[in-house]
Design a protein around this nucleic acid. Structure first.
Length: 475
RNA sequence: GUUCCCUUCGUCUAGAGGCCUAGGACACGUCCCUUUCACGGAUGUAACACGGGUUCGAAUCCCGUAGGGAACGCCA
């Protein structure tokens, strides 16, 4: 039997991080078993479904590298006729029936149940009643004949055996009075028609699984293997929501996380293969088993995501990262800037946790005039610094064609040795501030070599002017 | 309210009755390296929710309790 899994998002919003993980699990399982991974858009809620959301789902899945099989994506809304057909077939087989209750009657039923402290449930008044007794002018719905006695049991691949007494399940609606299918019904018909063998989804659907099994059974269709994955929570343990910051894949992308890092992190959240921490989704697919998904919920830990991302930043190709930096910048960038950036990116990428950080730390390669941040300004606004800067300027000017990392290093250490009793920091602090406008940077001498002598001397001169204008230069 | 699910360091987790003095990763502390910040290396703090069973032996099996979550629509 070929394994067929699916991801079935409803396009009512952006692709959620939890949804992405579900997709990842389904993708991995299909890959592992040599099966298929299908995509179905559950757009039966016409009020809330949007074209933008559908496109965002495609975009984000592709960004994550999750390719789906099948000639075309299945749109649930396009299958309404088939859903209705199955519902009527069920009536014909005596497994479902028309119900002519009005919304008012249902409301009364609910109120009565609540008054008695019971769960609001349909009282099955039309289950065995002859349709000839139907009131005129009421369009019926179709309800399933749910079993009345016994238990319904699901062997869940994640949660284990789950049993619910049938007394808890009522005759829920399959087809609305306007002829449209309910979600519960549409899902089953689609999963059956698509040949889905394994349903891996959020555990908010665990309760639905019982109801869905009833439909599968009524049609005599094989019930797929269910695996209900616990939801991802925020750092405080509450359900992920807007106040936790990012929750959609697009937001993680904007925050500068690499797709391979997001995949790795998400896969490791709630699933494990021993102590393995860093792996590609292809590697995970080889290891993957639904049984290894954890039954308990997990929390999003941005610090750990940062760590995973740091790992993949280092592995990432220089050109790719340079392009990311350029597109994330609003600066006017020419060929000289690009060449500097490409030469400097290697040292830069091992220091940044995200593309956003990388972009910010690469900025000094891309500007023509350095702006000093607060700490850099403080470092320059200093008597010794001004003194040192003159020494540096003179020494570097003498370097001429030998403006290499090594030569610069030697020159700076020479100054430190002879003027500052060997304290190299006395030279480095103002120099870094002048070149980068910050108090942190990648290895500075190398960066200076990349910038080139002309650019460096220009920046040193600018720093000297700045120091002059800011007064603390009496020596 | 009813039903269902969950519970190992702060977080993600390993763990399938003896391999557990409970392991790894992130975070945090200390030290080393160092031109800064990182990285890296070393090292340390830190958990089986609670209470009963079963067993020679329980993080692991069973039952309760507490806490957390989910579902109960002519929403998906």
């Amino acid at each position: 039997m070929t394994v067929i899994t699916r991801f079935a998002p409803s396009p009512t919003g952006m692709l959620h991080i939890g949804g992405a993980r579900t997709a990842l699990f389904n993708w991995c399982y299909a890959k592992k078993t040599g099966g298929k991974f299908l995509l179905r858009i559950e757009d039966t809620d016409k009020e809330r479904s949007t074209k933008e959301a559908i496109e965002a789902i495609f975009r984000d899945l592709k960004w994550l590298g999750l390719d789906w099989d099948g000639d075309a994506t299945v749109y649930q809304s396009a299958r309404a006729a088939r859903h209705a057909e199955v519902a009527h077939e069920l009536v014909k087989r005596g497994r479902a029936y028309f119900c002519y209750c009005t919304p008012e009657e249902l409301e009364a039923m609910k109120a009565e149940a609540q008054a008695k402290g019971e769960q609001p449930r349909y009282n099955r008044m039309w289950r065995d009643r002859n349709p000839s007794e139907a009131p005129a002018g009421v369009k019926p719905v179709i309800r399933i004949k749910a079993p009345i006695d016994g238990d319904t049991v699901i062997e869940d691949a994640v949660q284990g055996r789950v049993t619910v007494p049938n007394s808890q399940l009522d005759d829920f609606i399959l087809l609305r009075s306007d002829g449209s299918p309910t979600y519960m019904h549409a899902v089953v018909v689609d999963d059956a028609d698509m040949g889905i063998t394994h349903v891996i989804r959020g555990d908010d659907h665990l309760n639905n699984a019982f109801r869905q099994k009833i439909i599968f059974d009524a049609m005599g269709w094989p019930v797929p293997v269910f695996g209900h994955v616990p939801l991802i929570h925020g750092a405080d343990g509450a359900k992920l929501s807007k106040r936790h910051g990012a929750q959609s894949v697009g937001e993680f992308k904007d925050m500068g996380y690499l797709p391979e890092a997001v995949c790795n992190y998400l896969l490791r959240l709630g699933w494990s293969h021993g102590d393995d921490e860093l792996f590609t989704k292809e590697q995970a697919a080889e290891w993957f088993d639904v049984n290894d998904i954890n039954a308990g919920p997990s929390r999003l830990d941005m610090k750990k995501l940062d760590h995973v991302n740091t790992h993949y930043m280092r592995l990432a190709d220089d050109t790719r990262l340079a392009e990311e930096v350029i597109t994330r910048n609003s600066l006017k960038i020419d060929e000289t800037h690009k060449a500097r950036l490409l030469a400097g990116i290697h040292d830069l990428k091992s220091r940044a946790a995200t593309l956003v950080q990388l972009t910010s730390e690469a900025k000094f390669y891309l500007v023509d005039e350095v702006a000093y941040d607060e700490k850099a300004a403080a470092a320059l606004n200093d008597h010794d610094a001004h003194h040192a800067m003159h020494h540096i300027y003179d020494a570097l000017a003498r370097l001429g064609a030998d403006f290499t990392e090594t030569a610069i290093d030697t020159a700076c250490r020479h100054i430190a040795e002879h003027v500052y009793a060997g304290k190299l920091a006395k030279v480095m602090m103002p120099l870094r501030a002048a070149i980068c406008g910050t108090t942190t940077s990648p290895p500075l001498f190398k960066a200076m070599e990349i910038l080139g002598q002309a650019e460096v001397m220009k920046r040193l001169k600018a720093a000297l002017h700045w120091m002059h204008d800011h007064g603390h230069h009496h020596h």
